[in-house]
């Protein structure tokens, strides 16, 4: 198994076989996590620092659990409350961190490209836990693992990504990953929430759910941020739900065995109907959370092997 990267900054830098490598290893960790002894020592002696410059409960918990299960010493730094507010630059932060000798650095930042910038300045392996509207690679990887387990393959599937594409790093990473694995990607959403030039990404674009969902294997819903709901990008929450919220009627246009995904946290009654979200035959949303821990364990394991030169 080779994974020739120092950092995991985005899906953009990964080759298809490297994606498969991560997913295969993650499968092993799914098994470990479901067993009695949920522990391994592959990161034993290593220090993992989670730096979140933007609020996150789920992703941070997932990375923390992943690190702890692999035996790393995990520290969380809530950067919103720290010296960043006092005008310390990202570079200063990087220099401070270097002095602490971490091995793995998990970073989320509200600005696109900020994690790349930090990675250039620190001496350890950096995992991007989401930067602005740019990338969220571990989310795309956990989505891929979920799809592969549910569908038995990760190629030649028709996959719809629905909602606020423009502001979504999850969408960007997924478009790249699913495209690299040779799937057919459809983007569905109001035109005000579509990024410009998106057609050039090798995707099909729809502004109508019924047409867009026709015969798809996978329906990925995206979270609509509250601050985008009132008049700026869409007229109202209720009109959005009416036109783009996933309900049984809209889902009936997809294949009968289509799965429903959501990166969470969900706005029930805005982008997704509660009945769909909780339908154990269709929704794999809980499974996504489980895969998240396994994928992050796999990613950190691979990066740590490079650190130790045992890859």
């Amino acid at each position: 198994m080779t994974f020739p990267h120092r950092h995991l900054l985005g899906i953009e830098q990964l080759r298809p076989e490297e994606i498969t490598t991560i997913l295969d290893l993650a499968e092993e960790y799914v098994a470990l996590n479901r067993g009695d002894k949920k522990h391994s020592d592959v990161l034993s002696g290593l220090t993992q620092i989670n730096m979140f410059f933007e609020n996150s409960t789920r992703t941070q918990a997932s990375f923390e659990l992943a690190g702890k299960r692999l035996g790393a010493d995990v520290m969380n730094m809530a950067m919103q409350a720290s010296s960043v507010k006092k005008g310390e630059t990202l570079i200063d932060t990087a220099l401070t961190l270097n002095a602490m000798h971490p091995d793995l650095l998990v970073v989320r930042h509200p600005h696109s490209g900020a994690v790349d910038l930090l990675a250039q300045k620190v001496n350890c392996a950096v995992l991007n836990a989401g930067d602005g509207r740019h990338e969220h690679p571990t989310q795309a990887l956990l989505d891929a693992l979920t799809i592969r387990r549910a569908k038995g393959r990760l190629h030649r599937l028709s996959i719809a990504i629905c909602g606020d594409i423009a502001h979504s790093r999850v969408a960007r990473s997924n478009i790249m990953l699913l495209g690299k694995m040779e799937n057919r990607i459809r983007l569905i959403g109001p035109p005000t929430l579509m990024p410009s030039g998106i057609e050039e990404f090798g995707v099909e674009v729809f502004d109508n759910m019924d047409e867009g969902l026709k015969d798809v294997d996978v329906v990925m819903m995206l979270r609509l941020q509250k601050e985008r709901m009132d008049g700026g990008f869409i007229p109202s929450e209720r009109e959005y739900y009416h036109r783009y919220g996933l309900d049984a009627e809209k889902l009936s246009h997809a294949k009968p065995d289509a799965i429903v995904m959501h990166p969470g946290p969900m706005n029930r009654g805005v982008e997704i109907d509660s009945d769909i979200a909780d339908d154990i035959n269709r929704s794999v949303i809980q499974e996504q959370v489980e895969m998240g821990v396994a994928v992050r364990m796999a990613a950190m394991d691979l990066l740590a092997r490079n650190l130790k030169g045992t890859a």
């Binding site: 953009e12 696109s112 490209g113 930067d131 602005g132 509207r133 740019h134 990338e135 423009a166 790093r169 960007r172 990024p195 410009s196 030039g197 998106i198 050039e200 990404f201």
Partner: peptide, 15 residues
Amino acid sequence: TSGKFASLRGLPAVT
């Protein structure tokens, strides 16, 4: 400037 590249990089853009 808005366009494919801006969307790829996830940067705020102007037409």
